[in-house]
Design a protein around this nucleic acid. Structure first.
Lengths: 125, 125
DNA sequence: TTATTGTTATATATATACTATAACAAGTTT
DNA sequence: AAACTTGTTATAGTATATATATAACAATAA
């Protein structure tokens, strides 16, 4: 899985890493049990510091997307707490939908958009 | 419209203000043409610095939620560019939906959630 | 005239983000 | 056994973001 960072973005580098890895899981570029490159390897590869990668991995571990052990490095292992997952999703969408309503985007339009994004990630699956 | 800030939150104070005002527009607590308290007034009211409020107002102005003139202070005036609004919404939802897919939340569940949040804001409208 | 408006300027303190080196124990490879 | 790689931790430095404190300005309202 290819990971790149945009140094001109105002999104923090460690967040760019987290986001790309989560999207990689969503669209099955990386699957349960796959291992990510070591912190030093990925850092070298994208041209950033080891600690920035380590921060991203630590967050992903803490949020339940991967597990880390010394034998195999970082391994994708999504921990699913459906209740927590839905609460988090709702919380994240609250501001976005408030913006949408303020700007006259209907619920049907929003749901169409949801379908498009699901299709984008799931493809034929 | 009541605005409060949580000093223990890890969300920046100016972002808390932006969020609460946008949600206030979405659920019609404040409407087109209504005016917000002056920067000094709101700062005094919630116990923060004038410049923090000014930063929030500047962002909301820049994002097209209000206009500011010296006669009447900050006035709600939502500028709607539907194309831009939908692009922004899609962009904001991409990461959230990637998380949802990773955690096994189906598109139907997500769309139910969208309905609930729309209902939350729109109420009987 | 007096007061209030948003805006701008300067300064300071703290937190976050990122980098740079270095070291450690645990595990893998040779 | 020795050499290497792993994640992790520690320390230190720089840069930027956040929030505060004072002060001043022109435009407007009372």
């Amino acid at each position: 899985m290819l990971i790149r960072v945009d140094f001109n973005s105002d999104e923090a580098i460690y967040m760019q890493l987290c986001r790309q890895i989560i999207i990689g899981i969503a669209n099955a570029q990386i699957k349960e049990g796959d291992n990510l490159p070591s912190v030093r390897e990925l850092a070298e590869d994208v041209g950033i510091n080891m600690h920035t990668v380590n921060k991203a991995y630590s967050i992903l571990k803490q949020e339940g997307y991967l597990k880390v052990d010394r034998r195999h490095g970082a391994i994708i292992a999504v921990e699913v707490d459906r209740y927590k997952a839905k609460m988090e999703l709702a919380e994240e969408m609250k501001l976005s939908i408030a913006k949408a309503i303020s700007r006259g985007i209907t619920r049907e339009e929003t749901k169409e958009m949801i379908d498009e994004i699901y299709d984008l990630y799931l493809g034929g699956r």
